[in-house]
Design a protein around this nucleic acid. Structure first.
Length: 324
RNA sequence: GGCAGAUUACCCGAGUGGCCAAAGGGGGCUGACUGUAAAUCAGCUGGCAACGCCUUCACUGGUUCGAAUCCAGUAUCUGCCA
């Protein structure tokens, strides 16, 4: 995507425009009730949901991603779900365009766009002014090979020469590779693509959180239910679809672990336990991501009148737009 | 009943006289995050008024300048013999 088109896309969630409905984003850790709350808001405000969960993109990954069934969606349109095969991959940059297009379309119908999903970066890509410099498979694989050969310190040293700002921030092999890739491709330091302001848009973000111990028991219960509902069979059925060949879908929680059961490397009980642990760790990372964003309005999932509290926030946001 | 062995922090597990609040891993917590993001990476993890102090290596007592490490007894567990 060129900088110019990024700017254009950015206007969909850019400065306040009178009469334009806000974008609502429901965020929070997995298992906190985002899907249900989004549904409630969609019904109350005549909205449509846009999936911002990177694993619900995949067709056939239903049980393990806790995807709402068609019936459970209660007639509310859900965009950006089930549009990829498990064999395929997508990227934040692609998602950004798709999500902004969906937002624009929903608005053009006079409906309220509601982003729902726990993928932090994907949410930001849809909502904020993020510009993703291009990528090149050959450049990247060459850099990855170098990383394997020479090690992280060596690549970091090279990055420091062309982009000291990034070199100071990064301590992660994958990120060093990306930063060097961007420099190789654009001739500009990766850090120069970072936004001047960290958080750009005043989009309404509603965060769901609650007691940690309760979250843990919810997640355990949820995984057990998934297993009872046939997670193993679902994983098995996706193998002919190319689950093992894909790069992203195979890494999904539950799928990763239950593939080991199919390979005879783990029992169902072990895989369940491993999935629960990994899900807990994922939920913590999600919380870390969303807590860092000062714009998130946090609500406790167990509070009475949760729907009403969220609705109140939405009303305020709509009111703000109307008077601008 | 007899013999042999085990008992270490939330869990597993190293340590067998001082360099031990005790390796390593798991778990947990915190944080980072711009094209794999349910991915990837980093820090912390006995307590505290914290460059020092206090309490820990099943329990009790002992040896020693000094013990998680040696000795004795007790408890629990494991294996072999009855």
């Amino acid at each position: 995507m060129s900088p110019a088109s990024a700017t254009t896309a950015g206007t969909t969630s850019g400065p306040l425009v009178s009469g334009l409905l806000p974008v609502v984003a429901v965020v929070g850790p997995t298992g906190s009730g985002k899907s249900e709350l989004a549904l409630e808001l969609a019904e109350r405000f005549d909205g449509e949901a846009i999936n911002a969960d990177s694993m619900q993109f995949y067709r056939g990954m239903d049980i393990g991603t806790a995807k709402l069934t068609l019936a459970e969606r209660r007639g509310i349109p859900h965009h950006l779900m089930d549009f990829l095969s498990v064999r395929d991959d997508t990227t934040v940059a692609d998602f950004q365009q798709l999500a902004r297009k969906a937002i624009a379309e929903i608005r053009s119908r006079g409906k309220l766009p509601i982003l729902v999903g726990g993928s932090g970066l994907y949410n930001r890509a849809a909502i904020d002014v993020l510009e993703f410099p291009g990528t090149d498979a050959a450049t990247r694989s060459a850099l990855e090979a170098e990383l394997g050969r020479e090690g992280l310190p060596a690549l970091l040293g090279r990055l420091r020469e062309v982009d000291p700002v990034s070199a100071d921030r990064i301590n992660d092999g994958k990120r060093v590779v990306r930063a060097l890739e961007v420099h190789a491709l654009t001739g500009r330091p990766f850090s120069s693509f970072m936004p001047e302001r960290e958080y750009f848009n005043p989009t309404l973000q509603i965060g769901l959180n609650g007691d940690r111990a309760e979250l843990h028991s919810r997640l355990a219960r949820r995984v057990h239910t998934m297993v009872e509902d046939g997670l193993l069979q679902e994983v098995e059925s996706l193998i002919p679809e190319g689950l093992r060949e894909g790069r992203t879908a195979v890494k999904a929680l539950g799928y990763q672990q239950f593939l080991r059961v199919i390979d005879g490397e783990a029992t169902v009980a072990q895989a369940s336990e491993d999935t629960i642990v990994a899900t807990r760790q994922f939920a913590r990372r999600q919380l870390t991501w969303f807590r860092a964003d000062p714009r998130v309005n946090w609500l406790d999932w167990s509070q009475s009148g949760l729907g009403a509290a969220a609705a109140h926030l939405v009303e305020e946001a709509i009111g703000r737009r109307a008077t601008t």
